[in-house]
Amino acid sequence: MFEARLVQSAILKKVLDAVKDLLTEATFECSDSGIQVQAMDSAHVSLVSLNLRSDGFDKYRCDRNLSMGMSISCMSKILRCAGAEDTVTLRAWDNPESITFIFESPNKDKLAEYEMKLINMDQEHLGIPETSYSCVIKMPSGEFSRICRDLSQFGESITFACSKEGIKFSASGDYGSANIKLVQNTDADKEEEAVVIDMQEPLKLTFACRYLNCFVKAGPLCNQVQLSMSDDVPLVCEYKIGDIGHIKYYLAPKIDD
């Protein structure tokens, strides 16, 4: 049997909000160590890697490894039925054809069960090579969302240029152009407001706004986002999920023609 309980269903709601614009369906791999999801968007431009560790759950039991194909839109609809303060339990039997979501109100006077059919999926698991990145940037996730939103008005892509001076985000299009520069700021009053730039080599990479604007939907999960970049490899955009795990988005760059 598989059973995973989270006192804060809000975490799972936020996780679904963070993937529902990119993925229509995904395989949830459940094992003793936790829940993992690796899935590409339909255009195979980006990849989502989600990891929720078993020790981060309030209760976790997984007697045998399970691969459960789930509709993300259906799961998202079900999670919308949970109250903000509800506890959520995911439950499935061995060789399951469905998974049950159980929502319990804080004072235990309401118990709701939603059963969702699993789907058979041909899964294509990709190996992600170990990479040492030449630029690693940590910044407030709200700031990154804002930059992506603001620059998206000017073009379909954003160029990330990292140098000793800091990081410059720029976009240009028919209306004109815009750029936003950030410098390192480790003196911020609060740790979550810091901008930390670790640059080994300067670089310039261009990424599609469409995907960046999907990634920033993970902003409510974490105050900080980490961007890891090297020339000619996918961007890694990482958000920690409390003490339970992380969500990493990989995005293939746009290449000069």
Partner: peptide, 14 residues
């Protein structure tokens, strides 16, 4: 002009 690369050109099937 830029063209969009695929993630599958960087990561191989495991």
């Amino acid at each position: 002009k830029h063209s969009q690369a695929k993630i599958t050109s960087f990561f191989t099937k495991a």
